[in-house]
Amino acid sequence: MQQLIWSQRIIERVIIVEITFNGEKEILDKEYSVLGFLSKNELSPDIVTVSLNGAILPKEDFETTLLKEGDSLDVLMFMGGGR
């Protein structure tokens, strides 16, 4: 009985969020802010632009915006001209 309660508690703690990242499905095992998600993917917030559900997300909101189930995130990079 004690064991069952424990396992239930563990299940409750696991947050599974499915998002679309650059056109592909991705499952997140915990809650991420946009900033946290960029950091997980080793993407510096200084050189990218984020489009969240079709709208450009201001950089000021990267830290406070949490990724929710069904979100569609596109990370657009600054790119040069190949000189």
Binding site: F21, N22, E24, N41, E42, L43, S44, D46, I47, V75, M77, F78, M79, G80, G81, R83
Partner: peptide, 12 residues
């Protein structure tokens, strides 16, 4: 500086 690029992983 010319060409602003950071050493990131290949773009997904």
């Amino acid at each position: 500086p010319a060409c602003s690029i950071q050493d990131n992983k290949p773009f997904k």
